[in-house]
Structures are given as structure tokens and as C-alpha cells.
Design a protein around this nucleic acid. Structure first.
Lengths: 188, 188, 188, 188
DNA sequence: GATGAATGAGTCTTCATTCAT
DNA sequence: AATGAATGAAGACTCATTCAT
């Protein structure tokens, strides 16, 4: 039940936004009453927090599995991480959008638990870039932090336009992105 | 007065979000009464639309001024556009965030006026890439549309993290972004 | 201008009702601004009172012209009065509907001026019936007051259903009503 | 509770009119809060519709009970129907006034449900007149539709002036009305 | 586990009215 | 004679939340 509610909530928050979606909307969509909601959640905000937690924890653990795989080069890891972010849209797109869009509606208390994880995700990319430098995979003359933000921007913005059933496969998009990041777009 | 209201609204919508900001909040912040708001705007949504219009029209015209300047190469134009998006955060950051975040609260009628302009902005970037190919500024082997989305992602995401009074200047950030896009991050 | 405003107001009050029609609606329909309204009327209620006055005064004077005509029998006068009420709908229908429907929105002060006139209209009919009795035009065995209310009901209700451009002429309807009142509907 | 609310609403709508009566007025008069109102009704208009339905359904079923009684002549049925309309004022007067006065505030959707019933009521009277002709109870030389409107006018107008605790009994009034309708007011 | 009834604070919006110009 | 800006009170409606059952 709690599971079902959370899933419906993600769907509705994605479609209509957190503030605009009422508890009534959520419970109606699964055929129970408002009382039931408050049996499982202490507040609307708690539900939102749960959604955030579930998303960022999942994402982080997938990212860490990639980073820990020592059989791969840093370039390959970078590809995997970018690829993951595209692939993930298929099943986590709604959650992702809710995550980035509705974070502001979390309480400070909740934010304190979630922001460090979100930052960790970015920090891991910075770390990957730094380690790739030492190994010679990446150049030495760029600002790691800005480039990390750039990569993140490319990845996160894809939630806004990427349609999983569109013309391009996730492989193609991730490939283009990685190419762009590694080799640039000008002739060499 | 209308001007003043719009500006305050942008500030508040940026800080607290469109739905959470009440008309009361807006009028209180400039010391008038609710009636006054409805003297100038027919609805909260109209105000939001006005904000969107003002932002996208301004952005488009700045972009077009860059694109029309024939004394510059395509690479330089790309730099200027990316640079613009960072510089713009200083004065238009709040509007930009409202633009991307609250578009969903526009009516269909308003969206029909705004979406084409937003798409035009992206389309202009695609065009720049295509023309740069012909001139030899850019390589021929990438997907223009995906790369355009990638560049847009980098630029638009910067609204989320860039602090105009931070350690890096806008020149530096734009420089890093353009370097990254042109030459990539791997050794050549 | 005042004239024009009153006429538009009648039209709108008839169509949408007094409460639902705003001053804004009225002034917009003739292309002036709200200030202008308050130049001519001290309040919305005063306008309503003016409409009531104009209507009941006109009706009363027409009724009195009929009653004073000594060349006609009482039966003929009854016909004329009923006929008048139907004919009047063509040009005064809107005013009449406003009169009966919106009287409740008058202040006590206004009501004190209007109710006596409205009662006078009914009282004149009672007087006609009483005089017709003495002359032998009407029977002696009915309750004058109730019959007067009955006749008034027939007449006033016609505002609700009579369409001036319908199949029956006002002559026909008045004729049927008078026949019904004089001879009844059962075989004699 | 819903019952109680509806009854209070009828009382208030009768006294002050639909538009002027606020939800606040209604809930205050029974000591609950506004939220409670919206727990039972989806809108003010729905409440009005419910009042209309309840009234016209009740009236129609009483009328039909009279019409179906084959032990009575058509003249007796006519008396019963007119009598009913007067008697009814005692308990349904407020509802009746609200019905006729506030119908305009119903939505088109509601009107579509109610107008046919209101028309049915009138149609039943026309039918009674037509059948009474065949049986010889009524004359053949009058316009059935206009006479029906005339009778309806007499009956419905009585809501405006009849005071149940006045000097005349409902029997007397109905008697006068039926006499007037059947035999007319002129000597035979 | 779940419901149904109720709350009360808050939201957007409307509108008659005022008044300086 | 008319306008435009502003007010402020009130209105319908929404919604997260509570709680007895």
C-alpha cells in the first residue's frame, strides 16, 4: 500500500507538480481515502522526502557500482555514468524530475539528509576526473569543478527533452555526449 | 507600478516558487493591496506569462544580436552565446529560474505563445552548429541535435549552481565550457 | 449618458441579474469608465431604484389613462389593462422582469417609495372589479381581493413565458385571458 | 447534516436571495465550518441544484398522484391541483420561491435536468384541460396552452402574496380560483 | 488498517466605492 | 464631465491535517 501510494505520488508529482497535487488526488488514484494516507505517512512532506531518498540512494548505489569496477578505464567509467543517466530515464525519469524540481519543498531537516547525497554524486564525478588525470586519460588544463558541472548539466537536462521511445537510442545519445566531452566538436 | 510588481514577483517566484507565493505576498512586499494587483493583471497566471514573455524575448533578442554579427567566426559566436548565458545570470538569473521551473503553470494558451520562442532559441544553436560545419569550424561526425541539447544542458544547468559573486568569473566559466565543447577533455 | 446607462443596466440586470451584473459590466457595455458611473449615480442601488421608479410610474400612468376613459365599460377596461400588460412586454419586458425580480435588493428607504405604487396598481384593479359589480358587469359572489391577485398572477407570469415574436399575437393572448376571466372555461 | 444544511440554505436563499447568501451564512446558521459544507457539496451551485430537484420532484409526484386518481372528474382534479399549490406554500413556500427566483443561477447542465421536469408540470395541466374537453367538462373554444399559462400564473404568483396564517384559508383561495377559472366573473 | 466527518487557515478573485486630477 | 489608480472587504473554494470509530 505504502509502495503503491509512493509510486502514484511520483507519477502525479511529475505530471502536475508537488504543490498542485493534493493528497486527495493521490488517494483517489488508488481508491482509498485520505485517512489511509495519514496512516502511512505523517505528512505530505514526508512522502516527498521518501521519494527523494529512494531516488538518490538508488542513483548513488548504481554510480558507485560503476566506479568500483576496477576492470574499466576512467574513460569507460565516464561513459557508463553518462549512459546510466540516460538509461535511467526510462524507469526513473519521473522520480528524477520530481527530485530536481521539487527539492525546494522539503523541510530543512529533510534537505540536510538529502543534499549531502546529491553533492556526493557530483563529487564522485569530480573524483573520477581527477583520477583520470593522473592516469593520463584526461587533460590537465581544465577546471575540474566547472567541467563536472557541465557534464552534470548535460545529463540532468536530458530529463527535460529525452523521450525513451524517440528516434535515438540511449546508447547513441550517451555516445554523442561522451564523444563531445572527450574529443570536442572541432576538427583535430 | 506594474513594473514594480513584476519585478517583485520574479524575486518571490524564484525564492519560494510560483504556487507557494501568494498574491498577498507580492502586494505586501511593495506595500499595496490585493485590489491593486488585479487592477494591473487579470490573474496570477497572466503575471507569470508576462514574466515568461519578458525573459524569453530578451534572451532571444540578445542571442540574435550575437548571431547576426558577421564579423565573428562560428566558434566566436558559440563562445558569445555560452558566455551570454552565464553573464545573464547576474541580472536575469531569477527570471531564468522562474522560466524553466514554472513553465508548467502556464495555461495552454500562454504556452502556445512561449514554447515556439523557447524552441527557436535551441533551433538557433542547431543552425549555428550546422553553419559552422560548412565553414570547417566544427566536425562533421556528430549529431547536431544531441550536441545542441548537451550545450543547452550545460548552460541552463548553470542557473542551478552558478553564484555571480563566487570565486570564478563568468569569463572563466564560459571559457571552460567552450574549451570543453570545442576540444574535449582528453589529450590530443 | 445617464439615460444610456440606465437602459444598458436594465438589459444586463434582466439577462444576468442585479447582483451578478457589476458596475464594470455596465460601463464597459457603453465604453466609459467606472468613475463616470459614480458621476451620475451615487450607488448601484440608486440605479436600481431609478429603474424601478421609471417602470412603475410608466405602468401606473398607462393604467390610469385606461381607467379614466369613461367611454368604456368595465369589461372593456379590464380587457385594456390585461392587454396592456402583454403589449408592454415588447418594450418594457426587461424592466418588468427586473422590477419583480430584483425588488429585494432595494434599500428600505427606496422600497418605501416603490411599494405603495406597486400596491396602487393592484388596488386600482380591485377598484375596477368593485365598480364593475355595481354596474352589473361582474358577479357579486367572489372575493375581490383574491380574484385581483389571480388576474395579476396571470398577467405578471406572462413575463416569464411570453415571447413577443412567438406564434400568438398579444391580442390573442389578452383575448384568451379576458375570456377566461369573464366566462370561465366550463360550458355554460 | 447534509439535510440540515439544505434546509437552512432554502430558508436563507428565500430570505436573502441566492447570490447574497454566502456559504459562511449557511454554515454559521448551523454551527459548523466552511470546510464541512464542501465535504457535502462540491459547490454552491450543486446545493442550489439539489434544492431545485427536491422541490420539483416532490411537486411532480404530488401532481401525478392527483392526476392518476380515476375516481375524480377533471374539474375535481383541477381543483385539487390548484388547491395543492396553495396548501403547499405552507411547507414548501420557501422552496417554491427559491425555485422560481433562482433558477437562473443554475448551470446549463443542471438546467437541462430541471427544465424538462418543470415543463412536464405544465404539460400535465395542458393534458388535463384537453382530456376535460373530450369528457365535456371544459369548453372547446379556448387556447389550451394560454389558459394553462394563465392558471399557472395564478398559482405561482400566489407564492408572492399568500400568507398561510392570513385571514383566508387555503380552501377559500383555491375555491375562488377554481370558480374563477371554471365559471368566470361575469353574470351568466 | 482504514474510514468518514470535520476543521480552519489560506488561496485566488471580484467588486462597489473613493478620490485626486 | 470623465478618468485611472487604488482600496478593502467579502466570496467561493481548496487542502493538509486530525481524530473518533
Amino acid at each position: 500500500m505504502k509502495e503503491k501510494m509512493t509510486e502514484q505520488a511520483v507519477r502525479l508529482f511529475d505530471q502536475k507538480g508537488f504543490t498542485v497535487t493534493s493528497i486527495q488526488d493521490i488517494v483517489e488514484s488508488i481508491g482509498v481515502t485520505k485517512g489511509t494516507f495519514y496512516y502511512y505517512f505523517s505528512s505530505k512532506e514526508e512522502l516527498l522526502k521518501e521519494i527523494h531518498m529512494r531516488y538518490i540512494d538508488g542513483l548513488l548505489s548504481k554510480q558507485e557500482r560503476i566506479l568500483e569496477d576496477d576492470s574499466k578505464s576512467f574513460r569507460e567509467k565516464l561513459f557508463d555514468i553518462i549512459h546510466l543517466s540516460i538509461v535511467d530515464i526510462k524507469e526513473q525519469g519521473a522520480s528524477a524530475k520530481v527530485f530536481f524540481r521539487e527539492m525546494r519543498h522539503l523541510s530543512h531537516k529533510s534537505l540536510d539528509q538529502i543534499e549531502p547525497k546529491r553533492d556526493m554524486y557530483r563529487y564522485n564525478i569530480e573524483k573520477l576526473l581527477k583520477e583520470g588525470r593522473k592516469s593520463g586519460d584526461f587533460r590537465n588544463d581544465f577546471d575540474v569543478s566547472v567541467v563536472a558541472f557541465g557534464i552534470l548539466g548535460m545529463m540532468n537536462w536530458s530529463y527535460q527533452w529525452y523521450k525513451p521511445d524517440g528516434a535515438k537510442t540511449d546508447e547513441e545519445i550517451a555516445g554523442t555526449f561522451v564523444d563531445m566531452v572527450l574529443k570536442g566538436i572541432q576538427p583535430q
